[in-house]
Design a protein around this nucleic acid. Sequence first.
DNA 1: ACCTCCGTTGGGAGCGCTCCCAAGCGTAGC
DNA 2: GCTACGCTTGGGAGCGCTCCCAACGGAGGT
Lengths: 346, 346
Amino acid sequence: MDSTLEEVAERAGVSRSTVSRVINAHPSVREATRARVEAAIQESGYRPHAVARSLATNRTHILGMVIPESVSRLFTDPYFPLMLRGATEACNSRGYQLILSLFTASVTPSVMHDRLARSGYLDGVVAANTSLDDGLIPRLLEDGIPFITVGRHPVDSVDYVDVDNVGGARMAIEHLLRLGHRRIGTITGPLSMTPAQDRLDGFRSVMVAHRLPLSERLVAEGDFTEAGGRAAMTRLLEEEPTAVFAASDSMAIGAIKAIRNANLRVPEDISVVGFDDVPSAVSIEPELTTVRQPIERLGQLAVEILISRIEGKGHDAVTTQRIVLPTELVVRKSCAEPPRRGGPRT
Amino acid sequence: MDSTLEEVAERAGVSRSTVSRVINAHPSVREATRARVEAAIQESGYRPHAVARSLATNRTHILGMVIPESVSRLFTDPYFPLMLRGATEACNSRGYQLILSLFTASVTPSVMHDRLARSGYLDGVVAANTSLDDGLIPRLLEDGIPFITVGRHPVDSVDYVDVDNVGGARMAIEHLLRLGHRRIGTITGPLSMTPAQDRLDGFRSVMVAHRLPLSERLVAEGDFTEAGGRAAMTRLLEEEPTAVFAASDSMAIGAIKAIRNANLRVPEDISVVGFDDVPSAVSIEPELTTVRQPIERLGQLAVEILISRIEGKGHDAVTTQRIVLPTELVVRKSCAEPPRRGGPRT
DNA sequence: ACCTCCGTTGGGAGCGCTCCCAAGCGTAGC
DNA sequence: GCTACGCTTGGGAGCGCTCCCAACGGAGGT
């Protein structure tokens, strides 16, 4: 069971090196020898010892997925599970493993970082949705470990995969405009995170392009959670918007609750657009109009690019890789034309 | 940056062994020497090479979390994220790392298994919610790798952590009985999974204890998903139950939709109880009465027990560890007294 | 003054694998 | 028939660390 290369070699009557060649599919092994070795491997149930191999090759085939503490709270949101699934899928098919590093309370970021990057266990790191201020990226850069971020990062040499947050937000707002809305509010994510910034930019750029009022009072910062969306919407309500763009579906769901709580209806009194298109977007009443982003694909691509960087395939190893995936507006039932002035809404 | 023990030793004017002792907090190092070595470590930015250490100690401090393919579909359910978070938390505080192994389409279970257990990278495995028929447990047993399952497993020597599914189901049904329901249906999970079996057993035992009808037609098998719950409920509707116990919140939510789809109301026409108490249980209308299980705690305990087994602390190493956590009924708004016969329901 | 013992320290021998270099051998070319 | 070259194969030298055993020296006991 726990046989070693040497034992297999003896059994096959060849040397350690030859067995190693067979295992690594090295071409220069005579067919007859190869067969003999393979038989010996079968018989002994031999499996290469990954740790020993890693020590010799300086490769572990293990990737780290880092999720900063601030974000791990969102873990009940399907966003991360989906991204993880994409990442895992890619790892599986490329023969890599994924270590999950959530920054939790019991451990400081720097301990966490040491354990990760400098432990020598990781061939590369996927830094998911880091916020700009957590200092993770500079450290990774300093370590020289290959990494990629999910969500754009401003530093020049950083690889990333992202979705078109600006474009998605634009589509959402344009949809609202098309329905006749003029007084549109937005609930943003935490502005230390680039996707939140970008969605807000998209919102603003459309408003500006249409010469619409862009009061800061129509912008409420949330935290991507339902509770945060609810609180933000409650504030927004005072401004009497006829439509709201929430930067995540969870926040949109929170917003709908706040609206109902104020005895208003969605979409008759206020239209709501979300972002993400998580499964529960269709579980709620009314089904949510939202911007779909390919979350699973994002995780998958991140891993694939990271691996190609690690393995140094072609020019991937020198060119910074930046991929932005398109987003898509999904029209459902949470938006309608704005109420007539002085109409049903008191 | 990538200095070795030897280099640090030279810098401190001691031997490799002494540096090793300092790093591993071995007591027999003179204070002065220790200080000198620590300074050298600081200066050189030395970090022990985890892989080399693992090769020498035969310990990686890496655990695997295995989630079978059939279950990874549930990934949009908050169950796994929460369990993962508990597990990660425990790993973090004990200095372990967690490798996530989802069985995905691109890889067969046996390849997956080889990669895991026999790669030598894993000190132990947490097998989450395996179904009885996927053959994972026998293989782990055969390999002799330490492991624990989340959700009870019938084999004698297997460690597990579980929640009191039977008791939880009982509480749910008794609650319904107390409200006056007699014709109660249930939507089960896939019966190849022990939690699904246990919840059904709880349902049955209460029904039997109260001498209530136990028609198989009032039992519909679902798959823990919302869509499955909806389909199962649609079938159940023909039996005209006044209440339904769904073995997961997702299925309960699906059931509510099916009920509404039939132009009936929850809870006025049909009461619904779920299981899990996921966050979205309070996001829907009406808020769901459900059985709460400590999911995060489950993941955490699984890891802690696994680690104590690996490290062979005391008798933990020989006694089978089985822990069953209590569940709790959370009464919200999805249950009411049954409609009067011939009442509003046509 | 000598022996013993303990607290410290150093160095060899691996852990199981890869990689490189060299050796063995058969064959083709001259 | 001899040289050269290419295909195979074997074995040494690590990868960076831990662990064990031996050695060293000073303190305490007699």
